[in-house]
């Protein structure tokens, strides 16, 4: 059993100006693990991608709730769960391919999942069409000193 030693749950309105707020919240919560600047930047980038996807794809032309759960596991790992109750993804495996995007006209590069994957230690995506999408990430913070 893994031990959850702290947690935080927030709900953000799906406005694009809340993307930076979500990054700041995650970075502030993660700071208790004494991460390096590099690790904080990894977390910010991964959170930014997941939250932006909820806004851009999940809710498209509407504004919905984005739930973010942050947990500290075993005093060395940050757990991040970000979910929307938007349109969902038909084919998750295809969506996770680098450069795949359903919104090329909006200048999306199709790199969000690739960023989440490479800047965290574990990425899971669960989605149901018409129900929404949940992204779960783990980021291990190296113990120092």
């Amino acid at each position: 059993m893994r031990n959850i030693t702290n947690y935080m749950k927030i709900t953000l309105a799906g406005y694009s100006r809340n993307e930076s707020l979500a990054r700041m919240c995650a970075a502030a919560f993660a700071s208790q693990l004494d991460p390096t600047v590099e690790e904080i930047n990894d977390i910010k980038a991964a959170v930014s991608e997941a939250v932006t996807n909820c806004i851009v794809h999940g809710y498209r032309d509407t504004i919905g709730d984005i739930d973010m759960t942050l947990r500290i596991i075993d005093d060395d790992t940050l757990y991040i769960k970000i979910s929307d109750r938007g349109v969902g993804i038909e084919d998750v495996e295809q969506a996770m391919q680098p450069m795949f995007t359903t919104a090329p006209d909006e200048e999306r590069a199709g790199l969000g999942f690739a960023v989440m994957e490479s800047f965290t230690d574990d990425l899971r995506v669960h989605s149901r069409v018409g129900k929404g999408t949940t992204v779960t990430m783990l980021k291990q913070i190296q113990r120092r000193g």
Binding site: R23, N41, K44, A45, T52, E107, R108, A109, G112
Partner: peptide, 13 residues
């Protein structure tokens, strides 16, 4: 000070 994939889209666009 920060850039995510939206910056990549900006440059490619």
């Amino acid at each position: 000070t920060f850039m995510d994939s939206s910056g990549v889209g900006l440059i490619l666009g």
